[in-house]
Simulated scan of single mutants.
Amino acid sequence: MERTRRSTIRSLAALGAAGLAGCLDGGLVGSVRERGGDGDESDESGDGDAPDEGRGPPTADGSRHLAYDLETLREESLSGGVGTDGIPSVENPTFVRIDEPTLIDDVPVFGVARGGEAKAYPQYVLVHHEIVNDVVGGDPVAVTYCPLTGTAQGFERGGTTFGVSGQLVNSNLIMYDRATGSWWPQMLATGIDGPMRGGTLREFRVVWTTLGEWRAAHPDSLIMTDETGYARRYENDPYGLYAPLGGYYADEETLFPPLSDPEEGHPKSVVVGARTADGAVAFDKASLLVERVLSGTLRPSDEPVIAVADPALSTGYVYLNPKNVTVEPDGDGYRVGGDGVGGAAESEGAVDADDLPLERVLAFDAMWFAWAGFYPETGFVGDHTGAGYGR
């Protein structure tokens, strides 16, 4: 398939969208377990590559479940119509205190709290760059955003930086690291080409929230400005709008067929997805914010998991729940019971959504079509009927 970003812009102008491309159908092969991470909320430990200068990015000790083999993912990659670094990453971001900008509270931002430091990255800036190479809490990191899949994710970068390769798979951004040139699909966090093929990046949580919510939770946070060194019309999102929802973000059409079509649901509905070495799960974000607690299973392992909402940040957290302990809302927090199978220590009163006494799994927002494309066997929980609702 030779359709590119430019031809897609022309042919889908009626959607008011401009964008990158997805991929063709691929073959299911089960789980790939090579080098990589272990699925924790912050994959910073293990015996993977150290972040030495001149080497590739550090890798985690473990793996991620993949529904396709690496060769299939490489073969299904597609040019987005721009060359390497045709979409320029930001290398020297500038920041101001979060109470300084005259932005409305509903502006979507990607929040990072790490090493005693909090930063917010506005969606309206990252939509033009997709990758910001930064330092947070003393650690060199990359904060990344793919507009076509609605995914904001964070990665440790060690002594190198990440750039936009110009390639996509399943509509998702393929990053490359500048030390080795290896390709890393953002959602998979796994190398599919180059010297680090099969490695898994160390990840950390990025919260998709709003300026007002992040400022209330982190009043001392910094926020990235649009002084990037590039001339861009940052007031214009080429794909549409998030507040109010419109354009590509709301339309049922995807720019290219996903790796696997979901059997039901709005393709652009937002899910909170999580994956480990054993499988993947997706919770409808709108349902989670209403119900507060949802239970599901990783597929294909059928390992029990539970998701809880954090209404203050309009986000959710996912935990492994092997003993099926009960979790119930208690005011703004949650009470964890000890009556699960096999018994478990219960909480001594209400605990915050991000602090349940269970093992937390890194989770992030994604458009349903993209998640189902990468993880077609995913167990889905909730009612995914509305595009983007619950952002």
Score class of each variant (00 low, 15 high):
Gly22Arg: 03
Asp25Ala: 07
Gly194His: 07
Asp40Thr: 11
Leu259His: 05
Asp332Leu: 13
Asp310Leu: 08
Ala142Lys: 06
Asn172Tyr: 03
Leu288Met: 02
Tyr389Pro: 03
Leu126Pro: 00
Ser42Met: 07
Pro258Glu: 02
Asn92Pro: 00
Arg74Val: 06
Thr225Glu: 08
Arg6Lys: 11
Thr8Tyr: 02
Thr225Arg: 03
Gln153Tyr: 05
Glu264Arg: 12
Pro262Val: 14
Gly199Trp: 05
Pro195Leu: 11
Ala243Thr: 13
Phe95Cys: 09
Gly342Ala: 06
Ser11Trp: 12
Gly62Cys: 09
Ile223Ala: 03
Ile306Tyr: 01
Asp330Lys: 08
Thr209Ala: 08
Gly194Arg: 12
Val272His: 09
Trp371Thr: 04
Glu328Ser: 12
Val271Cys: 09
Tyr334Met: 06
Tyr124Ser: 05
Ala350Cys: 05
Val293Lys: 09
Gly340Cys: 11
Leu294Gln: 14
Ile87Gly: 02
Glu328His: 07
Ile306Ala: 09
Leu255Phe: 13
Ala118Gly: 06
Gly198Arg: 14
Arg5Lys: 07
Ser287Val: 01
Asp332Asn: 13
Gly181Ser: 15
Trp214Gln: 12
Asp278Ile: 02
Pro101Val: 12
Cys23Ile: 00
Arg33Asn: 08
Ala189Arg: 09
Ala50Asn: 11
Leu126Asn: 00
Pro357Thr: 14
Gly191Val: 11
Phe95Trp: 07
Leu126Val: 07
Glu100Asn: 01
Thr297Asp: 06
Gly163Glu: 02
Val270Ala: 04
Trp368Leu: 12
Arg215Asp: 00
Asp139Val: 06
Ile87Gln: 00
Leu173Trp: 00
Gly181Ile: 13
Lys285Gln: 15
Gly81Asp: 01
Gln123Met: 07
Glu203Gln: 10
Arg360Glu: 15
Gln186Pro: 01
Thr326Phe: 14
Gly386Ile: 08
Glu44Lys: 04
Thr59Ile: 00
Arg202His: 06
Ala274Glu: 12
Gly349Asp: 12
Leu211Trp: 04
Trp371Gln: 04
Arg114Ala: 03
